[in-house]
Simulated assay, not measured.
Amino acid sequence: MAYFSKHYHDPGTEPGTLVAKSETREPPSFHLIDYTEDHLEEVRLVNAADCRDYVIRETRTWIQVNGQVDPETLRNLGELFDLHDLALEDVLNTGQRPKLELYDDRLFLIAAMPFYSGEDLEIVQISLFIGKNYLLCLCPLDEDPFEPVRQRMRLPNNRRFLSRDIDYLLYALLDLVIDSGFPVLEQFGYQLEDLETDLLEHPSQRTLAQIHGLKRELLVLRRVLWPQRELLTSLMRAEDPLIHANTQVYFRDCHDHSVQIIELLESFREMTTSMLDIYLSSISQRTNETMRVLTIIATVFIPLTFVVGVYGMNFENPVSPWAMPELRWYFGYPMVWGIMIAITTGLIWFFKRRGWL
């Protein structure tokens, strides 16, 4: 995952400019649900203009746009829903900080949804526009992550959902976005368990690289999820006609989940820091063990080298009283070996007695 993933315009660009940063692979898909307490209509649309007939009704409408949105489609949505240019710019330039902004009689929210794509951590920006009777949700993923919410709406006699205003639908989408952090943190937990085992049994450079990678991902995740808690706090306390008092209770539940995720995230960050300290201590301990063994070996061979060096001088003179008489002894060679074996045995016994072996 990249440290910096925000798309931005060139410095000096006029505010509200909509410029695509890359070629759009496929046109976005439009999935619309128009509902009342007694009726639910679900259709697939081709473009933004097809939403017009549903928006003017006295019903509640959820327009889900999936895929990379090109500037032209975004402009059409902006004209249809009278959206602010700065908000549209934030939709196009993904990687924004989660936030809540008020524009006249509508709200604009940006949320961050983490998930694992294979073995890589991804964080996708979810942009939501809320009006009196509509909710426009833009997600850059080709696959719709909000299908579970749609399945709840399809349930027969689901008056609890369909009878509520559009702010309850906003809660349902945000609840899914927030709760998507729990599977991600569960995956982090499994990785930490495996790293802890490797750390205690056979730490290596690969273990160190994994710890640093995990710590980096947790840091990036914290950077995007921390302001999301502030977003939910704002919704809980919002004094806006679009957010009703009976729905703020549900936003409070989302806020609780967000706090739990942040607390787990902070715990995992502390664990990675502790694991890094354990790795350094373990490597230091292994180095000390190696140095101790080498020191003992060197200590054993120092007196042996001295003995061999002395008798390797070969000063043999039968006349001189200072000559080495051992060189002419019949058992001189076995005697030197016996001395060296005795020295080695004595040193090993001494080291074991002191607890150094």
Score class of each variant (00 low, 15 high):
Tyr3Ser: 12
Phe4Thr: 10
Gly16Cys: 06
Gly16Leu: 01
Thr17Gly: 00
Val19Asn: 01
Ala20Asn: 01
Ser22Ala: 13
Glu23Asp: 03
Glu23Arg: 10
Phe30Lys: 07
Phe30Glu: 02
His31Pro: 01
Leu32Thr: 06
Asp34Cys: 13
Tyr35His: 13
His39Ala: 14
His39Gln: 12
His39Val: 04
Val46Asn: 02
Ala49Val: 04
Cys51Pro: 00
Arg52Ala: 14
Arg52Asn: 00
Asp53Cys: 13
Arg60Trp: 14
Thr61Arg: 13
Val65Asp: 01
Asn66Ser: 13
Val69Lys: 01
Gly78Val: 04
Glu79Asn: 13
Asp82Tyr: 11
Leu83Ala: 08
Asp85Leu: 11
Leu86His: 07
Glu89Phe: 08
Asn93Tyr: 15
Gln96Arg: 06
Lys99Asp: 09
Tyr103Leu: 11
Asp104Ala: 15
Leu107Asp: 06
Leu109Val: 05
Met113Trp: 10
Pro114His: 11
Phe115Leu: 11
Ser117Ala: 14
Gln125Ile: 07
Ile126Asp: 00
Tyr134Trp: 12
Tyr134Gly: 06
Leu136Asp: 02
Cys137Thr: 15
Leu138Pro: 04
Cys139Tyr: 05
Asp144His: 07
Pro145Tyr: 07
Phe146Ile: 05
Arg154Lys: 14
Asn158Ala: 15
Arg159Ile: 07
Leu162Thr: 08
Leu162Glu: 10
Asp167Ala: 09
Asp167His: 14
Asp167Cys: 09
Tyr168Arg: 12
Tyr168Lys: 11
Leu176Thr: 08
Phe182Gln: 12
Glu186Gly: 10
Glu186Phe: 12
Gln187Glu: 12
Gln187Val: 05
Phe188Trp: 06
Gly189Lys: 11
Tyr190Thr: 10
Gln191Phe: 10
Leu199Glu: 00
His212Asp: 02
Gly213Ala: 15
Lys215Gln: 11
Arg216Ala: 12
Arg222Tyr: 03
Val224Phe: 13
Leu225Tyr: 12
Glu230Gly: 07
Ser234Val: 02
Glu239Thr: 05
Asp240Met: 10
Ala245His: 14
Asn246Gln: 15
Asn246Glu: 14
Thr247Ala: 08
Phe251Leu: 05
Arg252Tyr: 04
Asp256Cys: 09
Ser258Glu: 05
Ser258Ile: 03
Ile261Pro: 04
Glu263Met: 06
Glu263Cys: 05
Leu264Asn: 12
Ser267Ala: 15
Arg269Val: 01
Arg269Asn: 01
Glu270Phe: 03
Thr272Arg: 05
Ser274Ala: 13
Leu276Ser: 07
Tyr279His: 15
Leu280Ser: 03
Ser281Val: 01
Gln285Tyr: 11
Arg286Pro: 00
Arg286Val: 00
Thr290Ser: 05
Val293Ser: 10
Thr295Ser: 15
Ile296Asn: 07
Thr305Val: 06
Val319Asn: 10
Val319Met: 11
Pro321Cys: 02
Ala323Pro: 00
Pro325Lys: 04
Leu327Ala: 05
Trp329Ser: 06
Met335Arg: 02
Trp337Phe: 12
Gly338Lys: 08
Ala342Asn: 01
Ala342Pro: 02
Leu347Trp: 01
Leu347Met: 13
Leu347Tyr: 03
Trp349His: 09
Arg354Gln: 12
Arg354Ala: 10
Leu357Val: 06
